[in-house]
């Protein structure tokens, strides 16, 4: 699974980075790298079975703290 993920991300990275460098879109390249790195890390963590925090749990806790729920 992890190997498959690495291959998929490598393919996406190669295609997009080449195209962005070719067009000289430097700002877009930086943004892409930031989002790409973040998505790669969380995908690898998810694939390796690490328990990632659920966003709904955070929202739920916040709403419970302010006593705002049905």
């Amino acid at each position: 699974m992890i190997i498959l993920l690495i291959i998929a991300f490598a393919a996406i990275g190669l295609v997009e980075v080449r195209s962005l460098i070719h067009k000289k879109y430097w700002r877009e390249l930086i943004c892409f790298c930031v989002f790409f790195a973040f998505s790669f890390v969380i995908c690898i963590l998810q694939a390796s079975g690490v328990k990632l925090p659920s966003p709904t749990q955070g929202i739920r806790t916040f709403l419970q703290t302010i006593h705002l729920h049905f």
């Binding site: 991300f9 997009e16 879109y25 700002r27 877009e28 998505s39 995908c43 998810q46 990632l52 659920s54």
Partner: peptide, 28 residues
């Protein structure tokens, strides 16, 4: 892409998509 003032939003499609996939898996 508008928030980061990028000229093209195409490069962000797959990166954001993979973040959303993980969020969909861990949300519930």
């Amino acid at each position: 892409s508008q928030l980061v003032r990028a000229k093209s939003s195409t490069p962000l499609i797959l990166s954001l998509g993979s973040i959303v996939i993980v969020l969909a898996m861990v949300s519930f």
